[in-house]
Amino acid sequence: MRDDAMDQAFILAKDHLKSFLRKVKKGHRLVAPVTNQHNDTLFCTINHLDRVPINLTEQAQNGIKSFLFPQQETLATYAVSADGYRFNRTDVRPEPTVYFGVRPCDLMAVLYMDVVFMGGVKDQHYLEKRQDSVLIGLNCNAPFANCFCSATKSGPFLETGFDLMFTDLGDRFLVEVGRPKGREMLQAWQQFFTPAEAEDTRAQYQLSLEAMAGFRLDVYADQAIQRLAAGLVPESVWEQLSLRCQDCAGCAYICPTCTCFTIVDRPAGPDCGERLRSWDACTFAGFTRLAGGHNPVAHKIHAIQTRFLHKLKYDVDKHGRPSCVGCGRCVGICFGGTDIVRFIKMAGED
């Protein structure tokens, strides 16, 4: 297959999917959405392709955030001895990993994490997991109940950012090539792929139009973003949200773009221990509290503002787009009703 032939799309027959993934698994860890015995669909590592059914029809309850930025990871171990106070890396080299079936929202979230962890000073722990990863996306033919990615311009179909992108055309997948790793993967296993016909790309276009018409929530993110930028969101909106927020941080943990973290030491004995990094949430009361007690973000209302301003104002100013990707997971998890869809609706109203 010549390089210039890579601009076009390819077809992978669904019958060949497992064979393709089996080949992929030879050189990579494979992570894909699987429905477990409790009927939960979660991205997980697939050890035996024949024993677990990959689920490409549900939305995974998690994204792939935790694979690149684990809920808890060891940054270093430390020991105090006659040699002094020494820190050592825990040398667990991450396996090269293929993420398969990643929805546009979750894929955009990884691109955002790339900016956070590698845009300035490069975070070594993220970088090592990210550099050997391949993102194979799956466009969303039918948005799920709480989805609003069209409002945040992060789906339901993506044209860039992926290594490979799959579109389900019924009995076959249309496969588009994005970044170089996708090209390499397709070249390595080209026996499974045939060039797509014009009718395949037409079918994909038709599906993308139908997907755009399939959203069930009306979410006007641009309106909220504009009103935030103009300072037009009234104090009463923040007040109401801060009263309802139960401070559980469920939204932050489930969010594919929330990347706040804390670092703590966990002693393993009197003279040694681990330094751990764990997910944190900017809405927690102690997030900004200094030793001695002074807290510049002393009120819940400010903590709530921090969360939504970060996603819908600061990141718009800094990166040109909001860092909400419209996956809708916080809508499902928030029992206080202070999710971002609620906020966008309240902020957008005159």
Binding site: V116, F117, G120, V121, D123, T259, C260, F261, T262, I263, D280, C282, F287, T288, R289, L290, A291, P296, V297, T306, L309, H310, K313, Y314, D317, K318
Partner: peptide
């Protein structure tokens, strides 16, 4: 300014001050 910090490199966000 003094702030609570965890990373020092602009990632953990504990030291946020407006934008």
């Amino acid at each position: 300014m003094e702030r609570h910090m965890k990373c020092g490199i602009g990632v953990c966000r504990h030291c946020h001050l407006d934008s």
